[in-house]
Design a protein around this nucleic acid. Structure first.
Lengths: 221, 221
DNA sequence: GACTTTATATATCGATCGATGCAAAAATAT
DNA sequence: ATATTTTTGCATCGATCGATATATAAAGTC
């Protein structure tokens, strides 16, 4: 049922000026290339020409397979989530305590955002996306929702920690979750500007000191 | 010596189809409008048409006065620095202790980045600028340098605090400064997504707990 | 092997991009 | 007043934007 297959390259060294259908393309591979391009350059700065060159297809194929630039970007965001979120969230989700979960989130973010774990662009595609500032309200909502999911996941974990008695009942989990989100967001910008993994790790270490202090305060106004 | 003046509006309700020179413009006012537009929408998403409309001038006037879109953006960055940096840095620079300086920086950032102190776009123009990701290396260097200045100012203040004995000699001021920079950067992204001043203030409060903990550790490996 | 379907490359669309030539009108000088 | 300079609005430039029409070659069907 898959519509786009790659038929063993069908060597197009024929003298016929390449017209028609000399080569098919793999949709997922093309989407991967588009994702990297959007990730590295952003939505506005990435043109259809850039995309077709990187995806090694013509623009009609792009539009037939993805519909529009907007729709392609939306699919790229989903591809990013499916393939790269685990780098940051895997250990968070399995950590036994909230402290270890948050620590893992920041530590793994330091590694992932600096390209330390794989050959990927620096910084988070979602965090650094400027889409939606004007002219693309739907995509703007999409990336804002994606950014909010970081907060939601962290806050849910903190709520659980309160329920389990790991941290005091009086803890302002909303403020603490916002703080974690802030630190992780900030790490993306530093990573984009060239900060390395060790530097972001030290930031994560310092950030966790607030956790210790905050969760050890028995009562708050 | 000023080249662009505004001659009391020279009411152009004349029947003559407005050709020629019906109105002069104030360069600084036009630059202010351009700055707001670049600030709110970013470099790529802001077109010359957007600019000329907001600045209420024709494109030839824009190019005569500023040279190019790149040059205008560079001037807008400078205008931003001249007019809005004080919101964030004024109390930092005059605070007697490093702790108060850092606290003021984060607190004032919370207010400034959310438009609490003036009718300005949310988030830092420099921090959120995606310029330089491709095609504009010179502007990219400019904004990266501007972003680095935050770190430089913070680190200089921390070095002074060490020299004055406010914080221990063994403090890793580089890591601490990077941490502060990270938090402030992250606040810009939250502000762009609609976080309000109170929320960012609570983030600043949590962030300062790391300061207290970090600077009270007598020895470090 | 001839016919139909599918998906591609070429070429190009109208719109808009950043950037200018030109003529007219305000400001200035004489 | 007249001439010169300055600076604008109008019109438009070539290039590129996102998106398509058309023609052609591969794959599928019989």
């Amino acid at each position: 049922m898959q519509k786009y297959t790659v038929p063993a390259q069908s060597d197009d060294k024929t003298g016929t000026r390449g017209r028609g259908r000399p080569r098919a393309f793999d949709r997922e591979t093309a989407l991967a290339e588009a994702t990297r391009l959007f990730w590295a350059k952003g939505y506005e700065a990435t043109s259809i020409s850039d995309l077709t060159e990187a995806m090694k297809i013509g623009s009609p194929s792009l539009y037939a397979a993805f519909g529009s630039k907007d729709a392609l970007y939306a699919e790229a965001l989903d591809y990013y989530r499916r393939n790269y979120d685990a780098f940051v969230w895997a250990n968070f989700l399995t950590a036994p305590t909230a402290r270890e979960a948050i620590g893992a989130l920041l530590t793994d973010s330091a590694a992932a955002l600096t390209g330390y774990v794989a050959d990927i662009p620096c910084g988070c595609m979602v965090t650094l996306s400027a889409v939606g500032s004007e002219g693309h309200p739907e995509l703007g909502d999409l990336v804002r929702t994606a950014r909010a999911s970081t907060f939601d996941r962290v806050k849910a974990r903190l709520d659980r920690a309160v329920a389990e008695g790991e941290i005091p009942d009086s803890t302002d989990v909303h403020a603490l979750a916002r703080y974690i989100q802030t630190v992780q967001n900030g790490m993306s910008i530093l990573a984009r500007d060239g900060a390395d993994c060790a530097e972001l790790r030290s930031v994560a270490d310092v950030a966790m000191l607030s956790w210790d202090r905050y969760t050890s305060l028995a009562t708050r106004s």
